[in-house]
């Protein structure tokens, strides 16, 4: 029978761990709500921009649009943008992204990797720490983006990416990140960022309105495409950020539950041990008295 004092110390330590995990869960829940608000606030802008773009491209054919971001060529030089988190304790969140990135490197782009034409851009310290130790070329990390996640900061990064795409430094830019579904579920997402796919109008018919366009339709489209690219990128980073807090909340919730279960088991063990000692003591007293009576 384990000794009483050892169990008591163990219970105390598990209890304090539970306190920490449940506090972290609450912090994550609050941050999750805040981050979700950001997505909700982005939505009207994104929807309206999309609507205007679709309206414009309906009246223009693809060839009329001089689109520097749509240059499709053999993917000789590839940039993978890997979005992870800055902090751990969020379950398999980062491991999933890293695994997918490795899979893509080894299955889809082995030639580019061997020639050193594959580069990574990591957003989030966890991905950076992992790939730093591998023999992959990397652009300067953008981990600070997650500490102060605003559209302005993200758009600076996207500006750079778009510039290096148009100048031919990369032929293809792809994103790997966790998309937020709900607090417990993240969808691992892998999508092409550049070259842009042409805007295909969805099923919803937008009633054509005779707009005055200023300066011209082409120029407006030229200005709107980079904007919508920035929105797409910003949304990916935001999605990953929200998913991170969701994942951490779930992980901490499970940890708290496990700690509670452990405390229950330990308490049972403790009580059993306590009773056993009492029984032993009584036995000793009784048999001692018995021996005296002789």
């Amino acid at each position: 029978m384990a000794n009483l004092k050892a169990i008591r110390i163990r219970i105390a330590s598990v209890k304090s761990t539970r306190q920490i995990t449940s506090a972290m869960k609450m912090v994550s829940a609050a941050k999750l709500r805040k981050a979700q608000d950001k997505i909700v606030r982005l939505r009207p802008y994104a929807n309206k921009l999309y609507e205007i773009l679709v309206g414009l491209s309906q009246s223009l054919s693809d060839s009329e649009i001089d689109n520097a971001y749509g240059r499709v060529s053999a993917p000789d030089k590839v940039l993978l943008v890997v979005i992870t988190s800055n902090r751990g304790l969020c379950g398999a969140f980062n491991a999933n992204v890293i695994k997918e990135a490795r899979r893509i490197v080894s299955e889809k782009y082995p030639d580019q990797f061997r020639k050193g034409n594959l580069q990574l851009l990591t957003i989030g310290k966890k991905g950076f720490d992992y790939f730093r130790k591998q023999s992959v070329k990397m652009l300067p990390e953008q981990n600070n983006l997650l500490n102060d996640l605003t559209f302005d900061n993200v758009s600076k990064v996207v500006d750079q990416l778009m510039k290096s795409f148009t100048s031919g430094e990369f032929d293809r830019v792809e994103l790997i990140y966790n998309q937020f579904k709900n607090a417990a579920v993240q969808n691992l997402t892998y999508e092409v960022f550049l070259p842009v796919q042409s805007v295909t109008p969805g099923k919803e018919k937008i009633v054509p309105v005779d707009y005055i366009y200023e300066p011209t339709q082409e120029e407006i489209i030229k200005e709107l495409i980079p904007k919508s690219l920035k929105i797409q990128f910003y949304k990916a980073v935001l999605d990953s950020f929200v998913a991170e807090h969701g994942a951490r909340m779930t992980a901490m919730h499970k940890a708290t539950d496990n700690a509670t279960g452990m405390i229950k088991d330990l308490t049972l063990q403790y009580n059993k041990a306590r009773q056993a000692t009492i029984t032993n003591q009584i036995l000793e007293v009784v048999s001692g008295a018995e021996a005296l009576r002789g």
């Binding site: 309206g55 309105v209 005779d210 707009y211 005055i212 366009y213 200023e214 300066p215 407006i220 200005e223």
Partner: peptide, 19 residues
């Protein structure tokens, strides 16, 4: 501040899209 110069929008303005 429109691209081709600043302009004002009053009630019942014609539909317009401008950068």
């Amino acid at each position: 501040p429109g691209k081709k110069g600043s302009f004002q929008v009053l009630k019942d303005h014609a539909p317009i899209v401008s950068t």
